[in-house]
Computed example of a mutant assay.
Amino acid sequence: MSMPVVFVHGTRVSGTMWSPVRALLRAPSAAPDLPGHGRRRGLPYDTEAACGVVAEAIEDLGGRALVVGLSLGGYVGIATAARHPDLVAGLVAMGCTARPDVPWARAYRLAGRLAARDPALADRVSRFVLRRMLPGAAGEAMIEGGLSSEVVASVVAAVTAEDPLASLAAYPGRVWLVNGTRDHLRADEQAFLRACADGNLTHLPGRGHLTVLADPAWLARFIDDAARTVAPCPG
């Protein structure tokens, strides 16, 4: 028996980024679009609204689920776990173990301002970069649901206003932190691990921030194992 899984996507892409993993997953799953992304493009983005979308997806799957997020999705997963621990049976947080209040956040704010000036150009550049970083099905899944570069500034403002370490400390459930060894957002992973009540850390050798998606079969197995771990025993 496996716990259902709710996948949470990254900035400016959509739930389709998880399609290659979901196609190989045994557990039932959903991958909703966050506000301002995909089918919710144009809606204002903030953390409360994003957590509400994840909570609604969990309710639709029966009221309790493993939450899996990458990058922005990981930060949203952490925030959702703290706000709705009764809904989040476990958390797989990928590529999101850097404190959002450190100097590198300034670079993301600048990127958000530049994207807001010409979102169409930013979308074209993103499509090119994503296809180069993730050739084949993984890259196509990233762009399949459309890109929303105009939302980047709002996302950065929302993420940098959060305290993910406090959120992890408030969540009593099982947490899996997963990082590529070449991911710049693993900078504070040991502090994030210490904040978990019940956590462990997995490294993917040679993988970067997004290239952790390059092996969907491995990810599906990992997530299925996590979903079984947090599933209640029959009877």
Rank of each mutant, 00 (worst) to 15 (best):
S2E: 12
S2L: 13
M3V: 04
P4D: 09
V6K: 13
H9C: 01
G10Y: 10
R12V: 15
G15N: 11
G15P: 14
M17E: 15
S19F: 12
S19I: 02
P20M: 00
A23G: 10
R26T: 15
A27S: 10
G36N: 05
R39F: 10
R40K: 06
G42C: 04
E48L: 15
E48P: 13
A50Y: 12
A50C: 10
C51P: 08
V53H: 09
V54E: 01
A55F: 00
E56W: 08
A57W: 14
A57R: 14
A57D: 15
I58E: 01
L61A: 11
G62N: 00
R64K: 14
R64L: 05
V68Y: 06
G69Y: 01
G69I: 01
L70T: 12
Y75K: 08
G77S: 02
I78N: 02
A79C: 10
A79T: 06
A81E: 05
P85H: 02
P85C: 04
V88S: 02
A89G: 02
G90Y: 01
G95V: 05
T97M: 13
T97N: 11
R99K: 13
P100D: 00
P103W: 12
P103S: 12
W104G: 10
Y108L: 15
Y108N: 13
R109L: 13
L110Y: 06
A111L: 11
A115G: 08
A115S: 14
L121D: 11
D123Q: 15
D123A: 14
R124T: 12
V125T: 15
R127Q: 12
L134G: 05
A137N: 08
A141T: 00
L147C: 05
L147V: 07
S148W: 13
S149L: 08
S149T: 11
E150M: 07
V151I: 01
V151F: 01
V155L: 07
V156G: 00
E162S: 04
D163M: 03
P164G: 06
P164T: 01
A169N: 12
Y171R: 13
P172D: 04
P172Y: 02
L177Q: 10
T181A: 01
R182A: 14
D183C: 10
D188E: 13
A191E: 15
A191I: 09
A191D: 13
L193R: 09
A195P: 05
G199W: 07
G199E: 00
H203Y: 11
P205E: 14
P205C: 11
G208L: 09
G208I: 03
L210P: 02
L210H: 04
A214L: 00
A214N: 03
A217C: 07
I223E: 09
D225M: 05
D225P: 02
R228D: 10
V230N: 07
V230G: 11
A231T: 04
P232H: 07
P232A: 07
